[in-house]
Design a protein around this nucleic acid. Sequence first.
DNA 1: CTAACGTTTGTCCAATCGGTCAAAAATTTG
DNA 2: CAAATTTTTGACCGATTGGACAAACGTTAG
Lengths: 211, 211
Amino acid sequence: MNTGTEAPRRTRIQQEKRELILEAALEVFSTHGFRGSTIDQIAEAAGMSKPNLLYYFRRKEDIHETLMQRLLDTWLAPLRELDDIGDPMTELRSYIRRKLEMARDFPRESRLFANEILQGAPRIMPLLAGELKTLVDEKAAIIKGWMRAGKIAKTDPWHLIFSIWATTQHYADFDVQVRAVLGPNRGGDGRFEDAARFLEQLFLEGLKPRG
Amino acid sequence: MNTGTEAPRRTRIQQEKRELILEAALEVFSTHGFRGSTIDQIAEAAGMSKPNLLYYFRRKEDIHETLMQRLLDTWLAPLRELDDIGDPMTELRSYIRRKLEMARDFPRESRLFANEILQGAPRIMPLLAGELKTLVDEKAAIIKGWMRAGKIAKTDPWHLIFSIWATTQHYADFDVQVRAVLGPNRGGDGRFEDAARFLEQLFLEGLKPRG
DNA sequence: CTAACGTTTGTCCAATCGGTCAAAAATTTG
DNA sequence: CAAATTTTTGACCGATTGGACAAACGTTAG
């Protein structure tokens, strides 16, 4: 019976339907949070009946859990890519760029994550204090090395990472506010390029007037 | 009967109980969002029965609405204080500091706001595109004046404001993650001072190594 | 005292929630 | 084809939701 693979064996139709449900759930969870979302909403968004959805995911939590697991892998990929083989300033700049691109291309994933953290991270707390902390500490050490070598200004590497997260994810999580404030002209598709230009200058040179 | 004040006349006990409810609701709404919170939760947190709570606020939405109205006044106060009578760089620095202090002292208000925006700002959208946009445009003009005068580096004033919002509010909205990553030692009460030091340097000089 | 008014609560309601289940329908297998 | 298996659905369940309501309670003014 066992096909030999480790993952739970699923038919082609199961794979497709599960994917459909996860796509719908991402849409719903990211805009209403976990408790604010209903199975009916997700089922309707996925174009199937509630019992049918529950045939593929037995509990509401299972959908959310699967979604979060996938999210964290892709979400931390940019940070994982940060290493000290290249020029430090270039390395940081491309990390910021990649992060901003993720906010632009995967805003729902960003909001899903933000919702979870905002509400106290009840479902991923161990991951934050474990895997995430380890990764950040590791990258902070690299950055600290750059500072010691005089390649970038001496400052707090952890808060530097926080500031990159905050500024880039802001364009996904607070997108409604950003667009409302920028208005129809400046708030169009070009806003991400404006943001990229601004962030590059901010992290590179700050606001002190140039000579 | 009328005391002469314009506000709806309320007995002393009504004022107190309403305040109690709003305090409890802030706690609950800020951690579970609007849909994720229940009247029972708020009533229990306020130490009264559900019907008693509904005697002071007829609907769940009324509580949330009152909370949001109060929030926006105090929330935008720091930005309102920004004017061009002082030294630009000092003015910006103290705005950042005030904003960070608000994230430290009023994290629940920050999260309440973040929850609302994250979910598409269904209840305050007109305010964002109206009052908020007007205020930001006004301040952006002041900042632009500073840039023209060569007082600070030329860049996008709107995205500058966004970056200040993002970096400061991050310490309230993502507090759980910040503390988890920093760990018990660096994540203690001193984290806000570390953040203040870092942000000051970031916005002042950026990351380019100093000569 | 009593009447009037403001406050509090127990009880109830319809709607919605997450989830179950048996049976129908569709698909795959022999 | 028919049997076995997988997929889909309608009906239903207990729990929880936001809210209504009348009765009870407390307080104050005359």
